[in-house]
């Protein structure tokens, strides 16, 4: 089973900074890390490979520094890593990102499964995986919490919904987005870390993408544009309720009913 895992670099901080002029996220000088859910996607890919054979390739689109998260995927056990990196891709919204990623997947030969995280923390649009699938003309199963069966060109998976989960059968190749319930990611082995240290990901630019429409890439190709960023209104400071449990209950009751 040949698996591509989409991994995204996110800022490892809770206060994102945006450039007031462009409305774009400032990544420079910010500590970066792999998007939490993408680690679960890598883990799932590795488990499938261990069971069924094949290859695991991590793919990211992002600035030069994103190499680090590809190395992280390699340290975990990914066979190969591909870095889609081009100035023309800066400022992509989720649809433009998907347009580019789908075309990068096409350069990877026979792919049976594309795995990604259900959503990324900083943007949390949860839309890249679905749009990549649509762009590739593949079926997509979102919010996968368990792959029950996979092989022979099909899979049966559990898709989390608000009230519980649905069981869905999908033909392969397909795209699946995963949630954290699916597994517990491994700690990279020393051997993996050594390999990652020396590993140089393959780099792709826009020129390498088949049928990439320039008008659909990067800031130019993005239909949405951030025009303003601002901090949330701070919560009013709270009050402490003290006393014996029954007194506390009395006071809270009065406060909530009042």
């Amino acid at each position: 089973m040949n698996i591509v895992v989409l991994v995204k670099q996110v800022i490892d901080s809770n206060d994102g900074k945006f450039d007031p002029a462009t409305g774009l996220l400032v990544r420079a000088g910010q500590p970066a890390t792999i998007n939490a859910l993408d680690e679960y996607a890598v883990e799932e890919a590795l488990r499938l490979k261990e069971k069924l054979g094949g290859t695991v390739t991590a793919l990211t689109m992002g600035p030069a520094g994103a190499v680090e998260i590809l190395k992280h995927a390699v340290a975990m056990g990914a066979d190969e890593a591909v870095h889609l990196c081009d100035d023309a891709l800066a400022g992509s919204d989720s649809q433009a990102t998907a347009h580019a990623l789908a075309r990068a997947v096409l350069t990877m030969g026979e792919v049976d499964l594309v795995l990604c995280g259900a959503e990324s923390f900083e943007g949390a649009t949860a839309s890249v995986g679905v749009a990549v699938a649509a762009s590739l003309g593949l079926p997509c199963v979102t919010f996968v919490k368990k792959i029950e069966e996979i092989g022979d060109g099909k899979a049966i998976v559990q898709r989390a919904m608000e009230e519980g989960y649905d069981r869905i059968e999908t033909p392969l190749p397909a795209v699946m987005s995963v949630i954290k319930e699916i597994n517990e990611p491994r700690i990279s082995s020393l051997k993996g870390k050594m390999r990652a240290k020396k590993y140089a990901p393959k780099t792709l630019g826009v020129a390498d993408l088949p049928e990439a429409a320039p008008e659909r890439l990067g800031a130019v190709g993005s239909k949405t544009r951030v025009v303003r960023t601002f901090p949330p209104t701070p919560r009013p400071s709270g009050v402490k309720i003290e006393g014996e449990p029954d007194e506390m209950a009395e006071k809270l009751f009065a406060a909530l009913k009042g």
Binding site: G123, K223, R225, T229, P231
Partner: peptide
């Protein structure tokens, strides 16, 4: 909101 609600962004879709 972005970044778990620590910053808000206003977004326009002007051309489509």
């Amino acid at each position: 909101p972005a970044f778990g609600g620590t910053v808000f962004a206003s977004v326009l879709t002007e051309t489509a």
